[in-house]
Design a binder for these strands. Structure first.
Lengths: 249, 249
DNA sequence: TAGTGGTCTAGACCACCCG
DNA sequence: GGGTGGTCTAGACCACTAA
């Protein structure tokens, strides 16, 4: 035979199904439109529901679909471009940004965070939980870890449960903003939503997340570490390195 | 009852299984060690194989495990830190970088790429396929799209099939490097491996990928667009904004 | 209460790798 | 050829949403 290329990949059912659905989404559906339910779709294509679901999962991962239990499957809008570059949010809690303080705790950080602090120690840190809301939608859940010495004027006593927990958080952010920021490191990797993130972002636990870890440097030391998880289905992270021409959206 | 918090989340089996396995990985397994096979694990935990696989999939997504058909499931090493910041690779094809040219074509770009070019048109572009190899491992597959006017000295005739396709690619990269780069845009989002990417990176089609889209600006215009897909399971993308203190690894 | 997506089961067969 | 992970099936039940 004249097969110039050995394909070697006997296209699987769900893969083929995915491309068929993808084409159909481009040509026959509008954003927000609801698809037939999974049982109906599976029957129409003559496959088991699990197989159909494998295709839908991929499309959801790629931001093409949105599925909500009890509601249905809808065509997703294009991903939201979210700026995480060094220009915006030079400091966490930058005035006018779209972060909302959710809570505060004084506790030892997880091992993954302790590892990127100079002091590898497991000392309790100011831990601020925040949510980023863009275009009216929550897109990210953040935990901001601030070593006690970074903000010496803030009390490091256990917060009084009777107090508003957000008050201490605001105090930490205010003191941070007083420091002269020398630079920041950023890393992006794939992760999945913990139970708290999931609640905050209206997703199920385990949903795919883009985890952005930022180190804030002051006087050559790490003054704070932020671990922000962005909804991977709905977000595109943009890094505008001070350029005047941002990507569309 | 004294339940101060209504959990509302009746922990699912695979979620619980995932945490159990995760703890076991931390305490009882070394990097590279092979786990018992899926049927054995499922039996040991008293669940169906599909349920066990749901837990393994999550752990693989988080970079904790590595699974290879015909071989087995092994404990993954920590993710590789890959620099995609503006300092490195100021231009694609930067001497001494770890990109390898794989092929060349002259064809119209996909809609997603055409959208970020000034000329939204569907003209044929120089299309260079490359692979990034770091620490001996292929970590990314890239398609670099260069509008013909960006490198006017390079022939825009269909390449002679008898020629080495990589020759034209090198020519394009060489001419690009002559231009004065004014800036670059970068965006990161979640995607999945197309068939060609999968082959290039030794993964199955559909594997989760971090898609980095970069626009290279010259004289206020987009001189090239790169779409690089990084293995999400093994990579952590780092953005060192010219800072002297990079993240470890 | 009816209908949706999410979880789970117990099987089967297939593609791939290695000895 | 024997063992691995990858795909697929045909069911069942559960959690959630909205009318």
């Amino acid at each position: 035979m004249g097969t110039t290329q050995v394909e070697g990949v006997p296209e699987t059912k769900y893969w083929h199904l995915k491309t068929v659905l993808s084409d159909a989404l481009d040509s026959e559906f509008a954003v927000g439109e609801v698809l037939p339910n999974e049982r109906a779709l599976a029957a129409r294509f003559g496959v088991a529901r699990a197989t159909l679901r494998q295709a839908l999962e991929q499309l959801e991962l790629e931001g093409r679909l949105q599925r909500r239990r009890g509601v249905g499957t809808t065509v997703a809008p294009p991903r939201i471009g979210v700026d995480v570059g060094p220009t915006e949010h030079s400091w966490p809690g930058f005035m006018g940004d779209d972060w909302q303080t959710e809570g505060y705790a004084l506790e030892a950080p997880p091992a993954s965070v302790a590892r990127v602090l100079d002091t590898g120690g497991a000392d309790p840190l100011h831990t601020v939980r925040r949510t980023r809301v863009t275009h009216g939608q929550p897109v990210a859940a953040e935990l901001l870890y601030v070593p006690v010495p970074s903000v010496p004027t803030v009390s490091s006593a256990p917060p009084d449960p009777a107090d508003d927990p957000a008050a201490r958080a605001r105090e930490v952010l205010r003191e941070l903003r007083r420091l002269r920021l020398e630079g920041q490191d950023r890393a992006v990797e794939l992760g999945s939503a913990r139970a708290e993130d999931a609640r905050q972002l209206d997703r199920l636990p385990g949903a795919p997340m883009l985890v952005v870890t930022t180190r804030y440097l002051v006087s050559g030391r790490v003054a704070a570490v932020s671990s922000a998880t962005y909804r991977a289905d709905t977000c595109r992270l943009t890094f505008t390195d001070g350029q005047p021409v941002p990507l569309a959206n």
